[in-house]
Design a binder for these strands. Structure first.
Lengths: 77, 77
DNA sequence: AATTATTATATCCAAAAAGGTATAAAATAT
DNA sequence: ATATTTTATACCTTTTTGGATATAATAATT
């Protein structure tokens, strides 16, 4: 699959660890498939927003617009 | 379709207006379909993250985890 | 080192997203 | 009020996600 870890994927993995959960446990609690949790932590970019939110909700979070890192900003045109 | 407007959908619409763009123009610049922009602004929750990011990028933003509104928090089950 | 637990990769497939396009509705302008 | 621009809804097709499951690889524990 070869996906790069992202800020989001690392964030999720960290939160999961902090809550002492395994991937199967997280999947169960969030009501998503194990496959999904794995894709998420591997940084897959094409995931469905609602599923990601199902997971983030466990941590009191949700997906929202945040400013991009300046080093990734594309200047006009 | 009957989708509820969300914080994100309202945010996108506002940003688009601020940048004086129509939906077709935004779709073109973002490289997504017009249908997608419409679903996005109508608050469809099952959209793909990468496509949403294609749009947000135009505004120097990206999807990231943000704290949930406290009134939506589910207390520890 | 060997066993066990956890995580990563792969295949199959039903369900659904996204694009294109057409038309209706709503908003804006003249 | 009418015309024009913009936005919303609906249908159809193609592509892809996500779940389930099996197996391989890695990490952790004893």
């Amino acid at each position: 699959m070869r996906e790069n870890l992202t800020d989001l994927s690392k964030h999720i993995k960290l939160k999961r660890k902090q809550n002492k959960l395994t991937q199967p446990e997280l999947a169960l609690k969030a009501g998503v498939g194990l496959r999904f949790v794995r894709d998420l932590e591997q940084g897959k970019s094409t995931l469905r927003m609602d599923k990601v939110n199902d997971v983030l909700r466990l941590f009191g979070e949700t997906l929202g617009p945040v400013p991009m890192d300046r080093d990734k900003l594309i200047t006009n045109e």
